[in-house]
């Protein structure tokens, strides 16, 4: 679900420039408990340098963002519906949870909102724009 972050947030991307002062390890969880999936995202100088899908042995992370798989799917739609278009919208309706040391997240809040939203399908480029 989150493998694309290595490309959309990798070295040299606008996101890496935006987060240039940031080093963090973010755990992303989809689904609950043992039946859910987990993905560890390592960020260095704002660039996503590693995306590791679980199961992970003794993972170490700064903060975790967790939501049900269907709620992640709503957030990741090209045009998400109301209540799912922003991380804090999901937080407000109790569908998402932030845990751990939230300082890297809250001091780079727009970076993380845009990073995760970067996995949304992009609008198709108009043919004349590619000519």
């Amino acid at each position: 679900m989150f493998a694309g972050l290595a490309e959309t947030g990798g070295p040299g991307t606008p996101l890496a420039l935006r987060g240039r002062a940031l080093d963090a390890r973010m755990m992303l969880r989809a689904g609950a408990g043992g039946s859910g999936s987990e993905t560890l995202v390592t960020i260095r100088a704002g660039a996503v340098i590693l995306v590791e899908d679980g199961p992970l042995v003794m993972p170490s992370w700064d903060f975790a963002i967790s939501a049900a798989e269907e709620d992640w799917a709503l957030f990741l739609r090209a045009v998400p519906p109301p209540g799912s278009h922003d991380l804090m919208a999901l937080l407000k309706r109790g569908a998402m949870r932030f845990e751990g040391n939230l300082h890297p997240l809250m001091s780079n809040l727009l970076y993380f909102k845009l990073l995760l939203a970067s996995l949304r399908p992009q609008p198709e480029t108009a043919p004349e724009a590619t000519a």
Binding site: D86, M88, S107, L110, K113
Partner: peptide, 16 residues
């Protein structure tokens, strides 16, 4: 003091 107020307030407003 350890979070840039302009950055975080702008990020909250963005999502609204």
């Amino acid at each position: 003091p350890d979070v840039h107020g302009g950055e975080v307030c702008g990020a909250v407003a963005y999502g609204l």
